[in-house]
């Protein structure tokens, strides 16, 4: 812990002063704000039609969850851009040996950097969530469904961050790490596309796909198997990054 905290603080500070992090936050929130007003407009326009359906979709189904879905789509691009420099940037600056020489083990470097990304991502999620929540008092939201969808998006953000940290451990160029993070994320999302088109909804390929687990959570279905899938992937990515970094010290 004594070596994790300084690492976490250092990375948090670096993120705070990076213009890219702020630009990404501003642009993505502007886009999500526009999506929110569009979704809200559609929701209000369909009010009379929905009044005829007592068990029809509500505010959470038509506004909050689709907005979180938009955020999840943006995350494929935003998270790799945010996390691309975590380790690749250190290698590029030549500062990685300084961390080793300060006696910080590779696992603490990786974990400290990863954990520093999470507050930024959670703030992004919270600000997005604040939009539908600002009107929640005027509706009767399904809080359970909203909580499940929020958990799903939070897990997805954390997973994409771990993927990019791992990609960043294998290269000196942050741009390559970002592209790798984006491609691996998209590949994990679409790995079961062929199976789905063939009408198969079970099997290993579907289990491997991020979309299978994310969509369950967005529908309000919380299952420990889905949560475990995300946690497993995060652990594997961070372990890979740690291994690569430790090998750096060995190889020089």
């Amino acid at each position: 812990m004594s070596r994790l905290l300084p690492m976490f603080r250092l990375e948090l500070r670096r993120l705070r002063v990076q213009p890219l992090a702020w630009v990404l936050l501003a642009l993505s929130l502007a886009w999500l704000g526009w999506c929110f007003t569009r979704l809200l407009g559609d929701f209000l326009a369909s009010e009379i039609k929905r009044a005829a359906l007592p068990d029809g979709p509500g505010y959470v189904d038509l506004v909050a969850v689709p907005l979180l879905g938009q955020l999840a789509q943006l995350a494929f691009l935003v998270v790799p851009l945010l996390a691309m420099s975590t380790l690749a940037g250190e290698r590029r600056n030549g500062t990685l040996p300084l961390l080793f020489a300060a006696g910080v083990p590779a696992s603490r470097i990786v974990l400290g950097k990863y954990l520093a990304l999470l507050p930024w991502l959670l703030a992004w999620l919270a600000l997005t969530l604040a939009m539908p929540l600002s009107l929640a008092h005027a509706t009767t939201p399904d809080w359970g469904k909203l909580a499940a969808a929020t958990l799903g998006v939070a897990l997805m953000l954390a997973t994409l961050a771990a993927l990019t940290v791992a990609a960043s451990a294998f290269t000196t160029h942050p741009a390559i790490a970002a592209v790798l993070g984006l491609l691996i994320g998209l590949a994990l999302w679409t790995v079961n596309l062929g199976a789905q088109m063939a009408g198969l909804n079970d099997g290993v390929v579907n289990w491997l796909a991020m979309s299978t687990h994310e969509q369950d959570l967005l529908r309000g279905l919380v299952s420990s198997a889905d949560i475990l899938w995300f946690v497993l992937l995060i652990v594997v990515c961070l372990a890979l990054a740690t291994r690569r970094l430790a090998a750096d010290k060995e190889r020089g």
Partner: peptide, 16 residues
């Protein structure tokens, strides 16, 4: 770390 100030460098190294 090019994006950090000199003071921040000293703090970071001290904490590490």
């Amino acid at each position: 770390w090019p994006e950090l100030t000199v003071a921040e460098h000293l703090d970071a190294h001290g904490r590490l």
